[in-house]
Amino acid sequence: MAAETGTPTTLTLKSNDDELFSVAESAAILSVTIRNMVEDGCAGGVIPLDNVDGKTLASVITYMNGISAIPADEEKKKSYRDKFLSDKDFETLADMVLAANYLNMSCLMDAVSAKIAQVMEKKSVGWVRRKFGIENDYTPEEEAAVKEEHKWTFEGVETDDDN
């Protein structure tokens, strides 16, 4: 392994739409999935990541490089994560949470799922159904009954015309 010679090892990751990315091994092993492949010696050539598209993988690699450049300072890491996720829309966040789950990156998983929750917090039920692609399977009577039980939680909900 190149690590023995002291030179940083670079891995090549391949997205499911066949884009290739080079990333330092030290940053890539933030992903437990990738780390296991490296430890098992399967990282010699190209590492195929069948569940992540190029756009999302590029973003994840930006995060890997950014976060691993920060020394062990949880406060700074947190503010980097906040800033990294601040301009992402719901669709991008949903792709990232799937990628973080597949790549087994707990810190990214935590941050992205918390960001999704923050985006959803004040949204309407209709917004959530649209964004999550969920079909309303209540009868109108059942829906009215569930809504009536928690009527006050519908106060202060944002209007739906934004993201």
Binding site: V125, R129, T153
Partner: peptide, 29 residues
Amino acid sequence: YSNNLPPEIIEIVLLKLPVKSLLRFKTVC
């Protein structure tokens, strides 16, 4: 949004919501 999130990830997200939002989202489905 077509790439639906699996239930286990939805649960992880829901666990991070405040109670008021959770009670409202009982109406989702």
